[in-house]
């Protein structure tokens, strides 16, 4: 299945000037947003970004920034009500890591 969500919303920012071409971003991204060719990273399709933050956390030179968080309506709704940063709440939602679920 080709998973597609809303367009033009991802907060992903990438500064090519800081890239040393280590390849980590392409290695960690679960949606193949990055490709690294000739020791330079390139954003292939930013609309696929789910803002998990793995690339930014693992980029050794800080070339990537993204407002990472949980893409979960329940958590965001709770955040709107409580005025706190949305986060995976409580132990009630945890799924099989092997099948890959994102919210907790």
């Amino acid at each position: 299945m080709k998973a597609q969500y809303l367009k033009n919303v991802a907060t992903l920012r990438y500064d090519a000037a800081k890239c040393i071409g280590c390849g980590r971003c392409a290695e960690v991204c679960p949606h193949a947003v990055f490709a690294v060719e000739d020791r330079l990273a390139r954003v292939v399709d930013r609309d696929r970004c789910m803002e998990c933050g793995a690339c930014a956390l693992n980029c050794p030179t800080g070339a990537i920034a993204v407002h990472a968080g949980v893409g979960c309506a329940g958590a965001i709704l709770l955040g709107m009500i409580t005025g706190k940063e949305p986060s995976c709440g409580g132990p009630e939602r945890r799924e099989d890591g092997a099948s890959g679920a994102s919210c907790c």
Binding site: Y5, L6, V9, M50, A68, G71, C72, A101, S102, C103
Partner: peptide
């Protein structure tokens, strides 16, 4: 169904925010 965004592996928080 919107709540199911919490279980998917491709919905971004910015996207869910806008959708909501």
């Amino acid at each position: 169904t919107m709540n199911f965004t919490g279980s998917t592996t491709y919905t971004s928080p910015s996207g869910v925010n806008r959708e909501m």
